[in-house]
Design a protein around this nucleic acid. Structure first.
Length: 442
RNA sequence: GCGGCUGUAGCUCAGGGGUAGAGCACCUGGUUGUGGUCCAGGAUGUCGCGGGUUCGAAUCCCGUCAGUCGCCCCA
């Protein structure tokens, strides 16, 4: 290590040692199993795309946030994918007309963003994407949300720990309109709504008045932005709390019914301050947050009915979300839900208690593995059976097979490492006994 | 791009002008067959890097790099 150059992982990337990888697989397994159970099929796309795929949607300003490159001598600009939705929209635009509707796809891709890393945000991360296209109904929104929530539940979270905050751009637009915001100013109003907590009150007031809001309008705007309410409640209550005319919330009715019918009411609440920066959202928008508000959003998504068309496909309704592994991992860690997650332990540990037993031990090991059993041995040279059993225990094995002098009569010790009991059994029977036993492990 | 904090053994850290320590982890042994304990022993660092001050710097000063947290941004 002295006269060689030492490399470290690039900024914002992670090395996954076995313990880390076990956690990553734990999360990804929950994502995949939940997706499949809800009828979504897995897809994958290229890790890098033409740069234009991202600038067409987000403008040139996005480039500074991307890892983009041009091949030496090449003419095309590429970028490592910062998100999956453009790839998805491209795939659907290309193949969409021939696909049975609705399209229900999910992916678990890695993504890359050239940002300054901080808690909950890295330069390389995994993000679960769940999307449903071609069904213009709130039941699609609810089904997508049900899938996300179900995965959180599978990972041990419950409604006391996380909340899905939901809004709807149409409802908020109608509400803002009733406060006097013109349709030309609507985009700016959304932007102001999104960023209201990031500016001093004077600046907020100034920008609000630029939208045509007087003092009353400003206070109503603020009230709307802070409105949070159970989705079980009457929408009329939402109207009275936000100060906006009840008619504005008509777009929420179908969504509310679908969420309640899907059994998601305990997890969800209306939060009219949720906007999401992305310009392509057209209807429902939502974010999943840790209840204590200590971490960044665990997931975010919404309806984006115009994007497939933007990619050259037919007009296609769409709704989906992304859930990253970084914040989710932090939340699970905070809640102590990862303590039991570790690399798979072996079902059995084979050790020889004497030189004469080495070859029979190796033969047994091979036989166990051929039978599909996760079996390990020690590579130490010691004959100290105590040390070897210690190694078996540390590896997490619940049983050990000890081959020794009893081999002369064709028998070995089969030891239960949990109870400490052991019995002499015929060598020929070991594989059958272990494969036939009920074991939660490996 | 800006700011706070932190860089000493594989990990967590202590120390602090006279050329380095602890715990954990790791390895070996405890002689020929029973456990995460115990005992004994062992390896490991250019104290992030560069420069300056000094007889002497891990220690003080300057710079730089890296990590981390936050701001900006956040698909």
């Amino acid at each position: 290590m002295s006269n060689q150059r030492r490399f470290q992982a690039p900024k914002g990337t992670r090395d996954f040692l076995p313990e880390d990888m076990a956690i990553r697989r734990h999360i990804e397994t929950a994502w995949r199993e939940t997706s499949t159970r809800h009828g979504f099929e897995e897809i994958e796309g290229p890790t890098f795309e033409h740069l234009g795929l991202y600038t067409v949607k987000s403008g040139e300003g996005i480039v500074s946030e991307l890892f983009s490159f041009r091949r030496e001598g090449g003419r095309d600009d590429y970028a490592l994918r910062p998100e999956f939705t453009p790839t998805l929209a491209r795939m659907v635009a290309a193949r969409g007309p021939g696909l049975p509707r609705p399209v229900k796809w999910f992916a678990v891709p890695t993504h890359y963003r050239a940002e300054r890393p901080q808690r909950g945000r890295l330069r390389e991360f995994v993000q679960w994407n769940v999307d449903m296209l071609g069904l213009d109904s709130p039941t699609a929104d609810a089904e997508v949300l049900a899938t996300g929530i179900s995965a959180l539940e599978a990972l041990g979270l419950d409604p006391s720990m996380v909340t899905v905050r939901i809004s709807h751009r149409d409802a908020v637009a109608l509400g803002l309109e009733s406060l006097g915001v013109s349709s030309e100013s609507m985009t700016s109003a959304f932007e102001l709504l999104d960023r209201r907590d990031k500016m001093p009150p004077e600046v907020f007031a100034e920008k609000a008045s630029a939208l045509g809001l007087d003092d009353d309008g400003l206070s109503d705007f603020d009230r709307l932005a802070r409105t949070r309410r159970s989705i079980r409640g009457d929408l009329a209550d939402l109207a009275s709390e936000s100060g906006v005319a009840a008619e504005a919330f008509a777009p929420l009715e179908g969504l509310r019914d679908a969420l309640v019918d899907a059994g998601l009411a305990d997890w969800c609440e209306w939060d009219l301050g949720i906007v999401r920066g992305l310009a392509y959202y057209t209807g429902s928008v939502f974010e999943v947050h840790e209840s204590g508000g200590r971490e960044r959003a665990i997931a975010g998504g919404g309806r984006y009915d115009g994007l497939v068309e933007l990619m050259g496909g037919p007009p296609t309704s769409a709704v989906g979300f992304g859930m990253g592994d970084v914040v989710l991992g932090l939340v699970l860690e905070d809640r102590g839900l990862l303590e039991e997650v570790r690399p798979a332990p072996p079902r059995v540990f084979v050790l020889s208690a004497g030189e004469d037993a080495d070859r029979p031990a190796h033969r047994l090991l091979a036989e166990l593995r051929r039978a599909g059993i996760h079996a390990r041995r020690s590579y130490k040279t010691t004959r100290n059976v105590g040390k070897l059993l210690g190694e078996a225990s540390r590896a997490g094995a619940t049983r050990a097979v000890i081959l020794g002098s009893e081999l002369g009569e064709g028998r070995v010790q089969l030891k239960d490492l949990v109870s400490g009991e052991q019995e002499l059994v015929p060598l020929d029977e070991v594989v059958r006994m272990i494969s036939g036993s009920e074991s939660a492990n490996g």
